[in-house]
Amino acid sequence: MWTILAINSVTFGGLLFLLSAGFSLIFGLMRVPNLTHGSMFMLGGYIGGSLIASWHLPFWLAALVAAAAVAAFGGVMERFLLRRLAGSVLAQVLVTLGVAFMVSDFSLMVWGGDPLSVDAPRALAGGTRALGVFFPTYRIAVILIAVAVAAILWAMLDRTRLGAMIRAGVDDPEMARVVGIRVSRLFTIVFCLGAGLAGFGGVMGAPILSVYPGLDFAMLPLALVVVILGGAGSLPGSLVGSIVIGFIYNFGLVMVPQLAYFILFLPMVLVLVLRPQGLFGRAAP
């Protein structure tokens, strides 16, 4: 019972990481909390689910196509809406919120009000029994994928030129501009990347959470909380924040189901009171 709960918590944490890593990077770099992020997660789930159900695409191919589609959507949004409002963060936030409402209604129109359930790939269905505990294969796979994505992201940020530019932009956008980094192109890349990750996370989450109207605004606050916990633009922060929230949410659901959503936000409150810049964020000078 507790072991399976723990596995579920880590799995949910992994999904949250896929969601919040991009949110955190976008927020860290552009200072814009992308309120469309939950919608991108949901959109990914719907697109991937439809590709699997109606087009009979293999699960992984569907996941990649969905991620690419959502990344493209993110790119369009950044280029044609956010770019025009450069300099006014408030306006940008409100636009992302407006787009989120539109996506929510659009999805309702296309996919209807019933949840779309997606089967896990057949190879990963079922589970293994070891040491008297049942390990569901798909959930373990999601954990591994999240770890792999974290490793790839970390390597990308730490080892590549693009990563160095992103880090410079997160640390000090002014300075990045001064040393000749094309910040505007960086914004587009990071926005696409974050959107794609969220879309990919949506497909990964579909067999576990299913995809339903309202998933977008259920996931969005979780991304906010993870970033408030972990600090903006911090990859380790996102990872730890995601796992913490994964545990609190799953254990909360079992132990105090009526207040699960409420206790989810308690760590955020604590962090805000004790350490406003987030667990891993740097202190402001």
């Binding site: 927020f27 814009v32 909390p33 969005l220 906010l224 207040l259 959503y261 409420f262 936000f265």
Partner: peptide, 23 residues
């Protein structure tokens, strides 16, 4: 600024969560 937006949003969602779940 933006931090204020994020926190109020999260707090608002807490109230929504309570309304929805605290049956």
């Amino acid at each position: 600024g933006v931090g204020f937006i994020m926190i109020t949003l999260a707090l608002g969602q807490i109230m929504w969560g309570l309304a929805y779940r605290w049956v």
